[in-house]
Design a protein around this nucleic acid. Structure first.
Lengths: 228, 228
DNA sequence: CAGTGTGAAATGCTTCACAGCT
DNA sequence: AGCTGTGAAGCATTTCACACTG
């Protein structure tokens, strides 16, 4: 299949074909009228725009269960990410092999970041250590941080933080599950609106533990909840 | 602090106070004019609406690094989730203790779901096993699935699937990082629009590996990418 | 003539602004 | 006097529909 039409792609993706064409048009005119899009060329252009063709060295701090799971995760390499180092504060971890790579001690952090030109860091430490690790990453020159620790990090302007809360997705499923159960005979009409707000991720409650911590415009955040 | 105003909450959350009030109003009128919202009452109402006050038994299938990390994750219990069982297909795993719980063999799947009234399942298996596990979960009565395996699952109508791709968040950071680097002297004006589309999570490309697999309206999905 | 690229219409979401309650 | 709750305005995104092109 050398070419594909916006209609086919849209059907496969479950979106409107006009939206797909408009989205693609922002990247330039890569389609051919009457024919469609050249698959190989399109993949290349989108890959390039999203930065998939670049090599992104990252450091991962905190090699517990989650850190190890992430280090073993195959999806990173295929998307241009290269794990430059696995770092843990526990001396007992130092030298251990995780995902075919020796864990290094936290003392090495700055040296590693500098030597590899790392600008993206992943924090998978316990909550208590996260802010401290974050500060060191930023001081060493990291400007993007992916935070799996259940804490909101504070960072200076110009540094991006995204927070992943693994329980939020479950939360969303449970919300819909609850709705399935109480089907039909609920009291207030507002139900529909609430479901909409949660799906849209635009509800105010979402901001409490927003994925992108500092934000202005709308973004793709999933909704969060009040303190547990 | 017994009460809080929409202004204070909005500032803390980084959103507009009118939006916050409108969101809250969908749940009912829980505020007091001239005073604000009673904190305890508000937390209770929101918790109830989101299903936090219920007990949700879940089964986790695939106890590798990621499964173990999830089993140990503290955030679940505090949000009403109770891990009813950890399940793995590998007989060598059976009986092993993970997060203080004995791993059970996949043969027990149906029995466990039935006995505990489980309606939510978490799949953390390798990609190859995911669809098969999914089918068994659905056949046994599970109606919501959280999928960490890098595969799109097909399910019958009425079953919700959410897919978590751990590399997508990194992808988004890299995208902005690339943008920081190329600041100012880029060729085309479209850059701004592309960034907007990615942040909004509304881009057509997002649907390729959408978090909520089957969808109609806009939702809180993060954007994805073309095949890696 | 099939299918892109895109103005214009339609829809949806956010913010303003103020009436009304405590 | 202070703050909620909400119609109405403003802004953004999505879809329609069609001129245009290979």
């Amino acid at each position: 299949m050398p070419t594909v039409s916006s209609e086919e792609l849209a059907a496969a993706a479950g979106v409107n074909s006009a939206k797909l064409r408009k989205d693609f048009s922002y990247l330039g005119s890569y389609g051919t009228r009457g024919v469609g899009y050249d698959v190989e060329y399109l993949v290349y252009q989108i890959s390039r725009e999203l930065g998939l063709t670049q090599d992104w060295p990252i450091v991962m701090v905190g090699i517990g269960n989650l850190g190890a799971a992430l280090a073993n995760y195959g999806g990173f390499a295929s998307r241009g990410f290269r794990v430059a180092a696995l770092i843990d504060a526990d001396p007992a971890m130092t030298g251990k092999s995780v995902a075919g790579m020796a864990v290094q001690h936290a003392d090495e952090l700055e040296k590693i970041i500098d030597a590899n030109g790392v600008s993206i860091g992943v924090i998978a430490t316990p909550a208590g250590a996260a802010q401290q690790v974050c500060d060191r990453l930023v001081a060493a020159g990291v400007t993007s941080i992916l935070n799996f620790a259940p804490t909101v990090l504070s960072v200076p302007d110009g540094v991006d933080v995204r927070k992943v809360d693994l329980s939020i997705e479950l939360q969303i499923l449970a919300f819909h599950e609850q709705r399935k159960a109480g089907e039909g005979q609920e009291e207030d009409v507002a139900d529909v609106d609430v479901a909409g707000a949660v799906d849209a991720g635009g509800s105010a409650a979402a901001a409490a533990a927003a994925t992108k911590q500092t934000r202005k415009g709308p973004d793709g955040d999933v909704p969060a909840v009040m303190p547990a």
